[in-house]
Simulated assay, not measured.
Amino acid sequence: MNNEKVEEFMGRVVADMAATDAAGSVVIGQRLGLYRALAQGPATPEQFAERTGCHPRYLTEWLRGQAAGGYVGYEPETGRFSLSEEQAFCLADPNGPNVPAAFLLALGTLRAEPRITEAFRTGAGLAWHEQHEDVIVGCDAFYRPGYVAALVSSWIPALDGVDEKLTAGGRVADVGCGLGSSSMLLAEAYPRATIVGSDYHDESIARARDRAAEAGVTDRVRFEVATARTFTGTDFDLVTMFDCLHDMGDPLSAARRVREALAPDGTWLLVEPNASDKVEENFNPVGRLYYSASTFLCVPNALSQEGGYALGAQAGESAIREVTTDAGFTRFRRAAETPFNVVYEIRP
C-alpha cells in the first residue's frame, strides 16, 4: 500500500467532508438573509449582529467558516468580513447563479436518505412529490437564473424560426414546468404568445398560478395539472421540457404525446443535462454532481412510475436521441449547450 496515495485520497475526503458540512451554513445564510446583509458592506461580527439582529456568537462562527471556505473575505487588521462584488453576485443576487439555492436543493435531497437506502434493497421508487419541500423550492431557485440568462437570449434564437413565431403570437406548451419560472419567462419575453404550463404535481401548479398572478401574466399563461402523457392541447408551435424527460418512467410515451401536440412545422425544445455517451468522460465534478442527484431524485422518480425507463441525469445524447426517434421524430440536433445543459431542437 502506498501511504502517499492514502494521504492524497484522505485529503480529498477531508475536502468533501468540509464542503458537505458547509452546506448547512450556506442554507442558513440564505434563510436569514446573511449574504444580502453582508453585501451591504464589511462588518465585524458585532457590527454584523447589529445589522442582522442575529446572535453575535453564532455569526462569528458562521463568518469564520465562510471565510475558511473562500465564500467571504476577511481583513485580519480590522477583523471585518466582507463580500467581493463577484461573491455577492453569486451568493446574494437571486438573478445571479444563486449558489445558496443549490445547497438548499442538496440538503433537501439528502433528507430522503433513509428511504433511498431502503430503495436500494427493494428497487422501489420515490416520486418527486414525495421529496422534501426544499427540493421543490431549491430546484426552481437553482435553475431559474440559468433560464433567465439563456432561454430568451440564446436558446430560443438558436432554434429555426421559433423566435419569429413567438414574437408574432405563437402557442407554447411548457411540459414539466414545476413552479412555472420557465413559463413566465416566456410569457414576459413574448407578450403576444400564449403559454400553457403543465406538471403532475398539484402543489407546484398551485404555486405557479399564484406566481403568475403576482407577475401579472395570467392573460397569456395558464397552468394545468397533467403528466407529460396527458397535457392538453394541439397545434403548438413550441413544446418545451427543461431537465425533466430523464426523470420520467415512460419518456417514450411522453415524446409521442409531444409529437401529437405539435403543429406540423412545430419544434420541441428539450433541455437535458450535458453528459457524454462514454461513462468515463462524465467522471468530473459536474458529472459527480449529476450522478449524486440522479441517485436521489431522477432514478427514484422514474422507478416510481410505469414505463420501465430510468434514464438518469447522465443518460447522454444517444439515449435521448433514441427516445425521440422511436417516438417518430425525424430531425434532431444539438442547438446550444452550457457546461451543465444541452439544448436539443427536435422536429417531426
Rank of each mutant, 00 (worst) to 15 (best):
L59D: 02
L59K: 00
L59C: 05
L59S: 02
T60A: 10
T60Q: 14
E61I: 11
E61A: 13
E61H: 11
E61M: 08
W62Y: 09
W62F: 11
L63A: 00
L63T: 01
L63H: 00
R64L: 05
R64C: 05
R64M: 11
R64F: 08
R64A: 12
G65R: 15
G65F: 09
G65P: 14
G65T: 11
Q66S: 14
Q66T: 06
Q66P: 09
Q66F: 00
A67N: 09
A67I: 06
A67H: 07
A68C: 01
A68H: 00
A68P: 03
A68Y: 03
G69C: 10
G69P: 06
G69E: 11
G69R: 11
G69K: 11
G69Q: 09
G70E: 04
Y71T: 11
Y71L: 12
Y71E: 14
Y71D: 09
Y71P: 07
V72P: 12
V72M: 15
G73L: 08
G73C: 07
G73E: 11
G73I: 11
G73V: 03
G73W: 05
Y74Q: 08
E75G: 10
E75F: 14
E75K: 10
E75M: 11
E75C: 14
E75D: 15
E75L: 14
E75Y: 11
P76L: 04
E77Y: 04
E77I: 08
E77W: 07
E77V: 05
T78G: 06
T78M: 07
T78P: 01
T78V: 05
G79P: 10
G79F: 11
G79L: 13
R80C: 09
R80E: 08
R80K: 14
R80F: 08
F81R: 00
F81E: 02
F81D: 02
S82T: 13
S82A: 09
S82G: 13
S82W: 13
L83F: 04
L83A: 06
L83P: 03
L83G: 01
L83Q: 07
S84M: 01
S84F: 06
S84Q: 07
S84I: 04
S84V: 03
E85A: 14
E85S: 13
E86A: 14
E86H: 15
E86D: 15
E86T: 14
Q87T: 00
Q87H: 02
Q87F: 01
Q87L: 02
Q87R: 00
Q87A: 01
A88L: 05
A88F: 04
A88I: 02
A88T: 03
F89T: 10
F89N: 15
F89D: 09
F89Y: 15
F89E: 12
F89P: 08
C90G: 15
C90V: 10
C90K: 10
L91M: 05
L91I: 13
L91E: 02
